[in-house]
Design a protein around this nucleic acid. Structure first.
Lengths: 197, 197
DNA sequence: CAATCTAAGCAACACTTTGTTGTATACTTA
DNA sequence: TAAGTATACAACAAAGTGTTGCTTAGATTG
């Protein structure tokens, strides 16, 4: 996980990592609402004032962590795009699932267990964009086999985005009972690629 | 919305309604984390101590409100079941969407705008049960047209439940641009009924 | 109606949490 | 080594929490 970038004072990185680790630890033990700056600083073995040097408050900290998530995922997507990938959709899914699996401890608490809204919201924006892009590039959608009825595009996008993210959340909450590759295949089957006209 | 049952002191009902209304009002103005018992009592024009007569704390209040939601929806489902409905799936969807529309002001903040985890979780449990029941009663699913591949049942359930709830949430967040009847039809098209073997 | 019951208001309490400030220390980098 | 800055520490006012004892006002029952 990125936790921010290059040429930063190592003390800053160390402190942010301590805060992040402490936060994930606490989330496994108590509810988000019970996590105070006090407790967080204590667990992270930093001074409470130091927390305020980095974040305005706990909601602000969550936003920053969501920024990191956004950044990580965009990096993955951009890497795939610049390969001019022949099997685009398929690969994106596998790479995304592998990313979630790699950082499962983090995603499990913020997405699956505690369902912190900001993370789901960010993911939803990402997924909606992804699906709309795909539809643009590959023509009109006909998601349910060949039933050539017209379903408003926004509904199809809402439906698929929620389905994908929800499935990933369930998968994480159950400690990933399927491999990323297998789950990606099932998701592809459930939401077939739009067919070219 | 039920806000609890029969033979209760009208003062209790009045107070709970005041708290509920104040809560929805505040949610439209500020973030959930900023809603304190202080502010809530002030807005509800009740004494702060009175709040503690009804709820342990704010998370507890949310749980109780989620209980009410559960109760309301179960009532709707039970009413439909005892009619021995010939067009089961279809009608359930319409009735559910009508319920959300009727209490849109409430659902919009707790589900769509603030995404308070406990409400989504409860809804998800309801929806998973609903879908699993349907599958039991009507045989093996083949959700994506006729692709006769075997997708693990739990994945199909995860996928469909998330898709339904997510679509409803989007629909609410956009102030219901489609009628319940229309949206129910689109949802039925997207997730075709399982076919009898 | 009157008597009883109890919800809600009020004041006060010790305690925790929050943000902030000023100063000192320790680490980092040029 | 010297300058810059992140962190520690102590202290503060302000706000919020959860609880108690007492009083007031509304509801219910005989």
């Amino acid at each position: 996980m990125s936790t921010s970038s290059s040429r930063t004072d190592p003390r800053v990185l160390r402190t942010r990592q301590l805060i992040r680790d402490a936060f994930i630890e606490l989330l496994q033990e108590i509810e988000l609402e019970k996590i105070t700056v006090n407790r967080l600083a204590e667990r992270a073995t930093i001074n409470r004032v130091t927390f305020y040097l980095h974040y305005r408050d706990i909601p602000d900290m969550l936003e920053r962590m969501a920024d990191d998530m956004d950044h990580d995922i965009h990096t993955i997507l951009n890497d795939l795009k610049k390969d001019a990938n022949p099997d685009f959709d398929w690969n994106i899914l596998v790479k995304l699932l592998e990313h979630f699996a790699e950082h499962a401890k983090f995603y499990k608490v913020v997405l699956a267990s505690k369902r912190i809204a900001v993370f789901t919201e960010r993911l939803m924006v990402l997924m909606v964009d992804l699906i709309n892009d795909r539809i643009e590039h590959r023509g009109a959608s006909s998601p349910s086999g060949d039933t050539s009825v017209h379903i408003p595009q926004d509904i199809v996008t809402w439906y698929s985005s929620s389905a994908f993210i929800g499935t990933i959340v369930f998968w994480l909450s159950q400690d990933m009972p399927y491999t990323p590759l297998f789950l990606a295949k099932q998701l592809s089957l459930l939401a077939p690629s739009p067919k070219k006209p």
